[in-house]
Write a protein that binds this DNA or RNA. Structure first.
Lengths: 207, 207
DNA sequence: ACGAAACTTGCCTAAAAGGCAAAGTTGCAC
DNA sequence: GTGCAACTTTGCCTTTTAGGCAAGTTTCGT
């Protein structure tokens, strides 16, 4: 999956170094107090090189998010073809989601980090960029779904709708999670959101 | 709905003038060949005033989209409370959607305009901003849905999921429509997308 | 009609953005 | 291994964006 020669590997490493540097600095100091120059310096490359990789701060920051979303699509492709669609989707998401959000999803993220992330995702430009990342990944996701269901990624609405539902489930879950005062468990929320999308969202009966 | 005194009205007018100017110029010339200064000039205000209204080009352009999305949420609130949720949603969307996309949805948009719009929405920064506009409107939408269904906009996932589904339906439909070679009718697509979200997205049976 | 509040504008500085070409690396064929 | 082609990094440079601040105008409420 990654013996592409030195050149490719270095490039990926630089890209990741830059985007992690961006995230770290912004979570620490707030987006307004980080210059692109700082990010480049932190990652050990020139400002001009930063611009070869990313058009702006937001894109650099959202790159981690994008990569994760693409991995979910990739994972979906790797799942056995016999597996029912939604089973595969839930598995793919839960598998690859342990969000690069914090370190690797291992240790419980400390409060300072969470606060920083909250501030970060509240930033308008960032939100847009993360949503865009979702949209990019949804194209891959839709293609994977089309393959798996024998639908047509170009002409049919279905695979696009499912892909969009997955993206929406992830987005809504993260938002809900970040808004909650008491720390919620992420996985059950995610599973719940995906299940509701797959099963439909009929109006809840009058109590 | 709009006798808010001169000040408010002028402000709204300026905002709209600016964002239409932005859209027109960008559709004509492409986003790279339009300076913020040009937009301000076209709308008859100073560059500095532009910046009082919008942080950047993308935001100005997406403002039309945002306003439309907010109107849909507003319309949902106005619908009779007895109407079933999804009936009301479909009606609200179809009612307010005749996309400011072209003139007002009346005349069939001419080819040059459609091409321009295609280029415009292909622009990465623009896509992000439009998605962000959706997200902003979805908050309102979720609140309206929560009211209507007796759920809690803060604690429950349901209203957020439905709002996200509406946003996704609109986005997917527009993308699908813009990608199609032959001109498709928008309304049936929209209705179809919404219906699928409400009813669920089970894997299509093997043919 | 008058003062408070809000809006517009110009001025100014810092930062972002991106074209271009020189210098440095890596990959590949021989 | 050598050498050339392709790609990457970097510095330099110019234009554009972004936004703080304060002076001048317009609108609002009483």
């Amino acid at each position: 999956m990654s013996t592409d020669g030195l050149r490719e590997r270095k490039k990926r490493e630089t890209r990741i170094a830059l985007s992690w540097a961006a995230v770290r600095l912004v979570v620490e100091r707030g987006v307004a107090n980080v210059k692109v120059e700082d990010i480049a310096a932190e990652a050990g490359v020139s400002l001009r090189t930063f611009r070869n990789y990313f058009a702006n701060k937001a894109e650099a920051i959202a790159a981690r998010h994008l990569d994760r979303a693409l991995e979910i699509a990739e994972e979906l492709r790797l799942r056995p073809a016999e597996e029912p669609l939604w089973t595969a989707i839930v598995a793919a998401v839960e598998d690859r989601f342990p969000l690069g959000l914090a370190n690797g999803g291992e240790e419980p993220p400390d409060q300072q980090w969470v606060d920083g992330v909250r501030l970060m995702v509240a930033e308008p430009s960032l939100r847009g960029e993360m949503l865009r990342a979702n949209a990019v990944a949804e194209v891959e996701m839709a293609a994977a779904i089309a393959e798996r269901t024998g639908t047509d990624a170009t002409r049919d609405l279905y695979p696009k709708l499912v892909a969009a539902a997955v993206g929406a489930a992830v987005t809504v879950t993260m938002a809900h999670w970040l808004e909650a005062d008491s720390p919620l468990a992420m996985k059950p929320l995610l599973r719940d959101a995906l299940t509701q999308f797959s099963a439909g969202l009929p109006e809840p009966g009058p109590r």
